[in-house]
Nucleic acid binder design. Sequence first.
RNA 1: UGCCCGAUAGUAUAAAGGUAGUACGACAGAUUUUGAUUCUGUUUGUCGAGGUUCGAAUCCUCGUCGGGCAACCA
Length: 558
Amino acid sequence: MAESNAEARSLNFLEEIVEEDLKSGKNKTILTRFPPEPNGYLHIGHAKSICLNFGLALEYGGKTNLRFDDTNPVKEETEYVESIIEDVKWLGFNPDKILYASDYFEQLYEFAVKLIKKGLAYVDDSSSEEIASQKGTPTEPGEANKYRNRSVEENLQLFREMRSGIYEDGEKVLRAKIDMGSPNMHMRDPIIYRIKKAHHHRTGNDWFIYPMYDFAHGQSDSIEHITHSICTLEFISHRPLYDWFIEKLEIFPSRQYEFARLNLTFTIMSKRKLLQLVNEKYVDSWDDPRMPTISGLRRRGYTPESIRNFTDRIGVQKRDNLIDVSLLEFCLREDLNKNALRKMVVFDPLKIVITNYPEQVEMMTTEDYPEAGEKSSKREIPFSRELYIEKEDFMENPPKKFFRLAPGKSVRLKSAYIIQCEQVIKDNQGNITELHCIYFPESKSGNDASGLKVQGTLHWVSKAHAIPVELRLYDRLFKVENPAMEEGDFKDYINPDSLEINRHALAEPSLANAKFNERYQFMRKAYFCLDKDSSEEKIIFNRTVSLKDGWAKEVKKG
RNA sequence: UGCCCGAUAGUAUAAAGGUAGUACGACAGAUUUUGAUUCUGUUUGUCGAGGUUCGAAUCCUCGUCGGGCAACCA
């Protein structure tokens, strides 16, 4: 992956660390890991972490494990495990190994015993409230309690009993004996094992005690010989603890490095809030195309390529950030522009009759991938006397800069003829019902001998051949840039117009064979993909992202 | 009023004591059988005050501002 043509490419801080460790001989090779807790679906923020961890390993010839941090049985489910594995693979990465912290429960238990034997851990009978109050606050030191001085033998006995299941949840915990006066809250004798008589998604009912994050994560890293354990900023204050356990347990010295998590405008990244949106029906599901989840983005039509590209461009640093969603959309369009099949779909049909065109069907040839130029595959589209164009592409009294159809004005119909509007037909209420136009036979696309010049080109479908489709038009989920930072409930800022369903759109006939793995550009409108709700009777497309609309901008300016 | 992170255009991200650059956005223009794409140009920045130095975004000091830390969550 190294850039050969840019030897002076600047490195991000993680790449610098890795290069230094490789150069100094500290590591011969690197091993990273992506460590999700299977308690929810992955989102675009996780994609940044995945790309970072896998990307770093790929760049320096190392490997990456996918390891589930499954130490809290009450929150974790195999449904989440499966979705996470699928999402990582969809993004284009292959874990060297798929592992689980729960695989190490026995070993972790032995680590705890070792700590007790060294006089560095003790069983505490205090209640959760007592422990909290004894812990002090960030500005006041904590204080030791009477259990802190239990003998090694007694601690060993008690810890064994905790495992055996004779105590109930909350009766006892195992704590590391460090420093109740530490300015770092995490060093004030952190709890490392608690009793939870719960069913675990993998170990079933084998265990009554489970290790806490701080006594599982670093240890798992060490067991796997992870060289660079990359996590988000909020774990910085855990690092002294991470290192303390490695030192006292005398195990492989994995090292932790922290980066700033991704924040994106007009959405939220909290798993808890995302779960709330699903549970309270603000969205249909975890993979609702409005969700920032990987599965939502996938269903929306995002490509793995565009997401990987995006994470490359945003870089990685330790400062908080809020990235403009327009950058994500730029990366998406960049990819789709190259790879989406062009199609014609009329969203809001207006009938036109070509009065001088015979009652016949003529097949027009058009390119599937205009960006590919001559190499593009081609397809044929039926053209006939009665067509539909977009309502918004006609104006009876157009402003000067309107390049589309108007009485007496002419435009080209994409890949077909130039037409001129002769007559506007209205109903009793004065609504425009159809347009009568004439076409110029000499102007046929590909061998235009008319010499006519037009300012606009419109998309169209043939009335007799068009097929009805449903379009789901998605917009941003929130009305404000940073919902998480607003006053009050984040749900008050949900965009009520985040989904608009169009049931009267008409598509060119080739779309009857739309495929799930294909991306489309409905010309002059937006990129779309087939939705999984589609059936034989109803073809449904999701709008992935709109095309940039220079005209809309012009209109807005007035 | 403890400890720990951090601060470069609107948003991100480079510059490792020596010309503040790049991308996205915005704006203007060219091209265009998609008002798309492409291309060209313009715009805007080192949190503040001191210090070290021939020279500071970079090193030091003191501030200011933002974030994190007091789950038997991860």
